[in-house]
């Protein structure tokens, strides 16, 4: 195998990961769906649609040829939206080799099947050695060279090591975890709380309210995660609390922007269209609602956000709804 590394998906996070790998001196290939996007990355070293004028490292080589980027490559990062994850997997499936490592960075749950992305990888491809990249990663901050960190969760130590070798620098730290399920759920579920945080911002409820939202949201996320088999401690780590805090605090977060727009009375379809990018929190809210219903999990915040997304609860009433919920134990005994 060559020392090349491949990134599938040229959205803001995919480009950023490719940029970090190239900065570390590794040859990196970035697979894009659109030829004009690949041309722009190769000739101007920018990806204007997702990252504006931020310059990408010149070592990032973009292409639309999936076969060439997967051939004889030991490590593949797969950073494509949840909605198209399965179709990219099935396109790539005949090109994958059993010894390859695949690390995905897609934060969401498949709407039709409730599958996590690692499950999709297992169902569609021959890949067994996989992992997930997650954490508080605002792409534009990282590409601007600001310090940050993430988690690689995998049950295969070699996958973690290879990913660390590719990504770690004096500006980017990688922690490891073997709770793939917990890290995937933390990354997906925090997007729902981020939408609620957008309401907080729009209604100018203050930072106390936001902190309350984050901590209660984290508690609910952990409850859902534990009921599905995750390690409760994962939710207090970089991929749990870390990612949740940044997503709720940062105005850059897409899901946060969805919340702001909902509070302003805009329609969901129009918001998604205006955003021009995927906000995974919207579809995750619907999926999680079903899980909560089926498993009878106590998660009023996540449930309330489902009602807001579906239009059955007015955002202005949502705040009153949340504030009048029965106050329970601060620390959930089930999570101890």
């Amino acid at each position: 195998m060559t020392g090349r590394i491949t990134v599938l998906g040229a959205g803001s996070w995919g480009c950023t990961v490719a940029h970090l790998i190239a900065q570390n001196g590794h040859p990196v290939q970035l697979w894009c769906r659109r030829a004009d996007q690949a041309d722009e990355i190769n000739s101007k070293h920018t990806n204007a649609r997702y990252l504006g004028d931020f310059p990408l490292h010149e070592g990032v080589q973009a292409t639309t040829d999936l076969e060439s980027v997967l051939y004889d490559v030991p490590l593949v990062f797969m950073i494509v939206p949840v909605k198209s994850f399965r179709s990219v997997c099935s396109q790539a499936a005949p090109l994958f080799a059993p010894e390859q490592y695949v690390v995905h960075g897609s934060k969401g749950i498949e709407a039709e099947t409730f599958c996590r992305m690692s499950e999709v990888i297992e169902q569609e491809t021959c890949i067994r050695q996989y992992g997930v990249l997650a954490g508080p990663n605002i792409a534009t901050e990282i590409i601007a060279g600001k310090p940050a960190g993430a988690v690689i969760a995998s049950r295969f130590p070699r996958v973690v090591k290879a990913s660390q070798d590719a990504l770690v620098s004096d500006r980017f730290r990688i922690y490891n975890n073997d709770d793939v399920l917990g890290v995937e759920l933390a990354g997906a579920l925090k997007n729902i709380v981020a939408i609620a945080s957008g309401l907080c911002t729009a209604f100018d409820l203050g930072e106390n309210a936001r902190a309350l939202l984050i901590t209660r949201g984290l508690s609910e996320i952990a409850r859902v995660g534990v009921s599905l088999g995750a390690d409760p401690l994962t939710f207090s780590g970089v991929a749990g609390a870390g990612d949740l805090i940044v997503t709720c605090m940062s105005p850059h977060s897409r899901n946060h922007r969805v919340g702001v727009a909902l509070a302003q009375g805009k329609k969901l379809d129009a918001i998604i269209q205006d955003l021009g990018m995927v906000a995974e929190g919207v579809s995750t809210t619907r999926v999680v609602h079903q899980i909560i219903e089926e498993r009878k999990i106590d998660a009023p915040l996540l449930d309330g956000m489902y009602q807001v997304i579906e239009g059955t609860l007015d955002p202005t009433e949502a705040v009153a709804y949340f504030m009048t919920l029965a106050a329970r134990q601060d620390i959930d005994q089930a999570l101890r």
Binding site: S90, P94, A97, P98, E99, T125, C126, F156, R158
Partner: peptide
Amino acid sequence: DPTGRVIDPARYLYVDGKPATDTKR
């Protein structure tokens, strides 16, 4: 593999191009 393509399972054991022992894996 799930697509029905014939694969060589020995390659699951490869590290740097040859079979290797890795208990955890």
